[in-house]
Design a protein around this nucleic acid. Structure first.
Lengths: 354, 354
DNA sequence: TTGTATGCGTTATCAG
DNA sequence: CTGATAACGCATACAA
């Protein structure tokens, strides 16, 4: 049958209270008692009953999640869905998970993390969208001894309890391998088209580009010509400006056969290709935004690289809960698969929750 | 605060016992009581505390899993790992999950399902490897009112509580889309090489082939030439026989540029290509067997189509547990993603458990 | 430093 | 048909 605390108490010749103290290292106990209890636990193979523990628990565990506002950047909506699934699943447990959203501005991030610090949570999940401020936040959390999880963007130097996300170098290589396959003609070239907002954390996008380039050098394929086109989005200019610039660039570069967009904005390029009826170009981008999915299905995007964002959101809180509640060890880095999506398999992927 | 059974009992002016009877539809209750309690539940928004329920539960839920022996066919080892993860996670709950293995023979399957029926479980997960016998098993389970889950192979007519696995037609189409991309020269052709054991359930493999062929017709690409080569493995012949036959076939068919293996035995072909130094052929197969992974990494296989078998095993018991224990509804069909793996992204996939 | 008692929310039994 | 009550295994406050 199941081994309970009293069982090991009896075996060790002490009371249940003592066993509890030893298991949780609270209060003082005689060394003799500790010895005997530990041995009894070992021999009988005690495993705590999580449901009983939860029922008896007085205080609730508090987890705070600091995520960019999906109303502003659709990309984050999937992580939120995953977090909400986790919240739902943990409903019967004594955990309270708060989601704090922030806008893609440094000031907003700071406000949000101040708010989180005031909550005095037992654990934090956050997306380090701005490096400097993220560092300050991490320092504060370390000082207050609050374990935290980095979601989606990895900075080892922040030393989180664990990271959960994708390896951007690897993702870039995967994209490159597909491009290489699609490059039927060696005289044609590949364009790396990065479209970014000013001031935003960019390191993982750079890594995706570096990984992409590395693929060709590592595989001894220097003959492949790779151009780069960088567009910085400025709030003051409107979209049609960019469209014109990029269209003209394309028209003047007929050798381009493949376009690689290292972030989630491939749909912008696809839209231009579609509107101006530019054919014969293979487009590959990242993330399952609705627009990307739509244009993938329509055939204007050939591949999307994805990373199971819902799952990442879900597991960021589940793993943290496990670490805090069940107190089991966690892997320091949870690198999620680099998923390859095309017109044919997108249907079974979109909105999938595992 | 949390709404408990006593809270709704008070509100409805009855006792906790009555509320319990109404919630679980056990025993008889007056219509008046039922009305009032249901209304109170509605108004207060009662959600049962799963941990308390579990603690109080007297009887344990019994789930039996009928899976092909992985010692015989490596393919099934991942499902088993997933099932074991689920067992582990449910350790504190009053569930007992038994795994019954069977050999890839009809008689063994029958013995195993007899054993399962004798156990009188509350729910069953099984792989319908042999159709006729699977039908008998399903009939028996229906008669005894034991809900069951079909894992990996789908037969709608068995009418399971739900199916969990991959859509083989879709998987075939995904494979085809990759082949089409890799077919740089229209004069070359594709070979569908199926290697099967006698007497084994073959319908989902056929579907993978059909899906593959459909891709080309549906996309108006009849000019692509597709050959088929079928090898039936006979226990009495040894492996080198097949090797010779296939090698000769290949040597006599220089037009073949791509080989599609609709089951997990691509490594066999890859091995022949490697041994006889046959280059320039793109090979695509299914499933992350160790041999497949090895030859993918070595470059003898270009793509593997996978289906998160661990996850499928894991969720087959988790979802069944949810349906039986928490009594929530389940989707009838859980189609898992058609994952595309190549040399670059395999590292983050193999052995991944979500 | 240690033992004991009470309660967590639910199930299940038993007496009405 | 209904109400009261003893478990379930653990955490915690309090007593010793």
């Amino acid at each position: 049958m199941k081994v309970r605390i009293i069982d090991i108490a009896k075996k060790a010749g002490v009371s249940a209270g003592t066993v509890d103290r030893i298991i949780h290292q609270r209060g003082k106990c005689s060394l003799k008692a500790i010895e005997k209890v530990k041995q009894a636990i070992e021999e009988l193979g005690y495993e705590p009953d999580l449901t009983a523990r939860n029922l008896a628990l007085k205080k609730v565990l508090h987890i705070a999640c600091l995520i960019p506002d999906p109303a502003e950047t659709e990309y984050w909506s999937r992580q939120i869905v995953g977090i909400e699934k986790a919240i739902n699943e943990l409903a019967s447990f004594k955990v309270k998970v708060d989601v704090v959203l922030f806008s893609a501005r440094i000031s907003s991030f700071r406000e949000a993390y101040d708010k989180v610090l005031k909550m005095q949570p037992n654990g934090v999940v956050y997306v380090p969208l701005f490096f400097e401020e993220s560092k300050k936040f991490a320092d504060e959390l370390h000082q207050q001894n609050i374990p935290f999880v980095l979601l989606n963007i990895y900075h080892q130097e922040l030393n989180p309890l664990f990271f959960i996300g994708q390896d951007p170098i690897a993702a870039g290589k995967v994209a490159a391998s597909l491009c290489w396959m699609g490059l039927k003609d060696n005289k044609k070239s590949i364009l790396v088209a990065s479209i970014s907002k000013l001031h935003q954390e960019y390191s993982h996008i750079e890594s995706r580009i570096n990984g992409f380039l590395q693929f060709f050098t590592e595989n001894g394929l220097p003959e492949v010509q790779i151009d780069q086109f960088h567009l910085e989005i400025d709030e003051n200019r409107n979209d049609s400006d960019y469209e014109t610039v990029f269209r003209d660039y394309l028209i003047n570069s007929p050798q381009i056969r493949i376009i690689y967009v290292p972030n989630s904005r491939a749909y912008r390029i696809a839209y231009i290709l579609k509107k101006h009826k530019i054919n014969g170009i293979m487009l590959i981008g990242f993330d399952t935004l609705n627009n990307n999915i739509k244009l993938l299905k329509e055939g204007y995007i050939q591949f999307l690289i994805a990373q199971q964002s819902q799952n990442q959101g879900y597991h960021s809180v589940i793993f943290l809960f496990n670490a805090l509640f069940i107190k089991n060890d966690v892997k320091k880095e949870h690198f999620f698969p680099v998923d390859i999506l095309n017109k044919e398999n997108i249907e079974f992927y979109a909105g999938r929750m595992l």
